[in-house]
């Protein structure tokens, strides 16, 4: 914060402007490798992928251009449509629930409870596990013969049925449960850090004004935590788009194609089906969907700040 305000001070700005390219020269030289990496690997690689998505590349990339054929095929493929549907559903629910659960847990921990460290560790612990381990663990938990269903039936509720992984209609919710279990801990910790950054005086002022605790959170605290929410949002969304290993470990896309996701389609068609063009077309569509979400947001976020 201090940095920002000093660079915005009128005197500093006027004095430094002509030299701005050479300001902090060592720092700029030091960041050249990263800039090059970003340009060559990310931008260059992305451009190469997009270009080759218009070719008939099979196992090895070629440059026989076929127009939009790959995209036409992509959008008439049932498996891709199912993947998109799944990702949209998973994405929406995961976004909402991760934020709500993450914030609620953080707020509860922030009430100066006893044993905060213990609870924080418990909630954050799943995040230390990889998606593969999470997937395997939940495969057992959700297995009707070993997990929840078995335990509940053992307690005497004989007709209890909870078998999401083998039911095409609800399998995506099984994946969602495992994803939430793994991911909310991190969001909770970030939210908790944000809550700790709120000045104690705000709470005192709210109390003096007689605003209730929950209302204070919603009306005062959450708007103040905007940067924290943005960070959490970016983390959650990137996790959603690249959803892959959890599905592989938990269901491998099954039953049938009921829990397929776009990233899996890309991998499958690029390497297994030896059809790079199709895989590139699918990954380009993933990029486009990210861009559709990200560009308006970036415009609002950064465009807004400049004006202010």
């Amino acid at each position: 914060m201090a940095d920002l305000s000093s660079s915005h001070s009128p005197d500093g700005k006027r004095a430094q402007r002509p030299m701005s390219l050479f300001r902090n020269l060592p720092a700029k030289i030091a960041s050249i490798p990263m800039i090059l990496t970003a340009l060559v690997v990310f931008v260059g690689g992305t451009a190469w992928t997009v270009v080759h998505s218009f070719t008939s590349s099979k196992l090895l990339p070629n440059t026989k251009f076929v127009g939009f054929d790959q995209y036409e095929r992509l959008w008439t493929t049932r498996r891709w449509l199912v993947s998109i549907e799944n990702l949209a559903l998973y994405g929406m629910l995961s976004l909402i629930f991760t934020l709500v659960i993450g914030f609620t847990l953080a707020a509860l921990l922030d009430r100066k409870i006893r044993g905060e460290n213990v609870f924080r560790t418990i909630f954050l612990y799943p995040f230390a596990l990889s998606f593969i381990v999470t997937g395997l663990a939940w495969q057992w938990i959700l297995n009707p013969d070993l997990g929840i269903q078995h335990v509940v039936r053992g307690l005497g509720w004989e007709s209890f049925t909870f078998n999401p992984l083998n039911d095409p209609d609800i399998v995506i919710y099984g994946i969602l449960i495992a994803g939430l279990w793994q991911g909310t801990g991190l969001i909770m910790v970030i939210m908790l850090a944000g809550l700790r950054g709120i000045d104690e005086d705000i709470w005192k002022a709210a109390r003096v004004d007689g605003i209730g605790t929950i209302k204070t959170y919603i009306v005062v605290i959450i708007p103040m935590m905007r940067p924290v929410f943005v960070t959490a949002l970016v983390l959650i969304m990137s996790g959603i788009i690249k959803l892959y290993d959890l599905v592989v470990a938990l269901t491998n896309g099954g039953p049938g194609i009921a829990s397929e996701v776009p990233a899996k389609y890309v991998i499958q068609y690029m390497f297994r089906a030896q059809n790079l063009g199709q895989g590139f077309a699918a990954s380009t569509m993933m990029l486009v969907s990210v861009a559709i979400i990200l560009i308006p947001w970036a415009y609002l976020e950064f465009g807004g700040r400049k004006r202010g």
Partner: peptide
Amino acid sequence: TPDTQTQIEDL
């Protein structure tokens, strides 16, 4: 081709 076979597998 593996491509066609993968599509049949998906089906």
